[in-house]
Structure formats: C-alpha cells, structure tokens
C-alpha cells in the first residue's frame, strides 16, 4: 500500500506574533516552528497502518522554505519511510487551491491509496486543502476523523460532529482523510529512530515544477484584533446578582439550559 502524509510546519502557537511589514501575514523571523498538531495525528495514523500491514510505504510531504526539512525529519523519525520537500520560500502566500494543486501534481502518477492530512493548519485554519486535493485527484474524501480502521480495500472511520455527536463513515480506496484531535496519541520520536531518519531518503522538488496556478483567494490584511474590554461586573444584593448570573449563563453559554 502507498500512503502519503501531508504535513505543514507552523509556528509554536505560544509565540508572540507580529504582523509582517507588508501587512498581509505574520512576521516569520524569531519564531520557533513545529509540525502542525493535526498533521502529527496524520503521521502517527499512517505509521500505525504501515506497522499493522507490514508492507506499506509512507511518504511524508511538506511545502515550505528550507527549515521545513526539520518537520519532515520528525515525520521520518516517527516512522515515515521517505520525505518529499517541496521547496517554496513563498508558501505562506499560497491559497488552499494552490497548495492542493502542488500536492496533486506531485501525487497524480504515484498511485497513493490513502492520503492523510491534518484537519486544518493551526496558522491558516482554512481546512480546505484536503477536500480540494481529493477533488483534483478524483479520490474519496472524509474529513475530521477521530478513529480509523482499514479492511479489505475500505476505510471505516468515525467522524466528530458538532454537539457531541459522532458518525461512522466508510469509503473505498483511494481516499483522502483529514485528521482531528483525539484520533491517536503521537509517539515520542526516540533517539535511535531519529538517527535512522537521518539516513532515510529526503528529496527536494522546486515548487515551480509543480505549480502553474494563480491564487483564487487573496489575503488582504492580517491584524491583531483590539483587546476586548474587561468582563461584566454584576452589582447589587447577592440574590439579585445570582439571578442575573444564572440568566447570563443560560443565554450566553451552554453551562445551564
């Protein structure tokens, strides 16, 4: 079985973000980067499937500048077999359609059976790349999976819906799956596996070889929202305050219904 995992390197979300000088994105220097959290679940699930099947190849692909290789190395240390770095210093300016197009041009003649992606990236949060990719490749697509099983050419997964409901869904291969929190617990890469990952194949392809599309969605401006004013202060007798608090909780939250 051929498995592709698409990962993105994003800033540590605890960083202090500054708006970049062109006003369209955040400033990337001085940030610490790591693998997008949802993509880690994707890698882990792909590696677990490979370990279960015994014979499968997991390819980890990432688009971005030179530092993106660090993310791919981590995927290789978790257990992916081969890395593909699509070198693009301007990847942050690409829209979801362009990103999906790049992946589709790489994947179109590779016969991948399953493509795992994170549900969304933590920095752009469009959640579109997986679905667009499946359309471009003509694959089935299931989003936000929280459990996964492969059997006889089919995947059986659970999806997380709003309001605490889950759904069981099944699809035939080939399929694109986007992974949600709760799918698995990602293993800690071990030193011996990190050392082995150094020796695994990591190829680099220039983005221009794979992309010939203009963006369809343009980011006009990135900004840090103004701080909201402090909370509401309830005043009066304690029983009145309690009644007000209860009515606010009923109206504005789901704590009380």
């Amino acid at each position: 079985m051929n498995i592709l995992v698409c990962i993105k390197q994003v800033p540590d979300m605890e960083s202090k973000f500054k708006i970049s000088s062109d006003g369209q994105w955040y400033e990337q220097s001085d940030l610490t980067f790591k693998i997008n959290e949802y993509d880690e679940y994707a890698i882990e699930e792909a590696v677990r499937l490979k370990e279960k099947l015994g014979s499968a190849e997991v390819v980890a692909l990432s688009i971005g500048p030179e530092r993106t290789k660090e993310a791919i190395r981590k995927a290789l240390a978790i257990g992916a077999d081969k890395g593909v770095h699509i070198h693009d210093d301007e990847s942050h300016k690409k829209d979801s359609f362009q990103i999906a197009t790049i992946i589709a041009s790489y994947a179109k003649d590779k016969n991948f059976d399953i493509i795992f992606l994170g549900m969304q990236s933590q920095d752009r949060a469009s959640a579109q790349v997986g679905p667009i990719l499946s359309e471009l490749l003509g694959y089935n697509c299931i989003t936000t999976i929280v459990s996964f099983e492969y059997q006889d050419g089919k995947v059986n997964v659970k999806r997380e819906l709003e309001g605490g409901i889950k759904a069981k869904v099944s699809a035939k291969l080939p399929v694109v799956l986007t992974c949600q929190l709760g799918l698995n617990t990602v293993r800690y890469p071990t030193l011996p596996n990190i050392m082995k990952a150094k020796k695994k194949e990591l190829i680099t392809i220039n983005v221009n070889e794979l992309l010939n599309e203009q963006p369809r969605v343009i980011n006009l401006k990135a900004y840090i929202p103004e701080k909201k004013k402090g909370g509401i202060i309830l005043e009066g007798k304690s029983d009145e305050v309690a009644d007000k608090l209860i009515s606010i909780l009923k109206e504005k939250t789901q704590v009380l219904r």
Binding site: A77, Y188, P189
Partner: peptide
C-alpha cells in the same frame, strides 16, 4: 518557549533539536 538568546539552536544539528523537543515533551 526556549531560552536561546543567541540563536544557539542554529548551531545544533537537526537530530539534536528533534531529540530535545521529543525528550522535553516526554519529560
């Protein structure tokens, strides 16, 4: 957060950074 005032991380091999992050999370 990393205490790295002089960008010493840039002098480390990728595998050392990877191990550092993995081990830190484990611990």
């Amino acid at each position: 957060m990393f205490v790295d005032y002089y960008k010493i991380d840039d002098l480390l091999a990728d595998e050392d950074k990877l191990l550092r992050d993995s081990l830190r999370k484990f611990l």
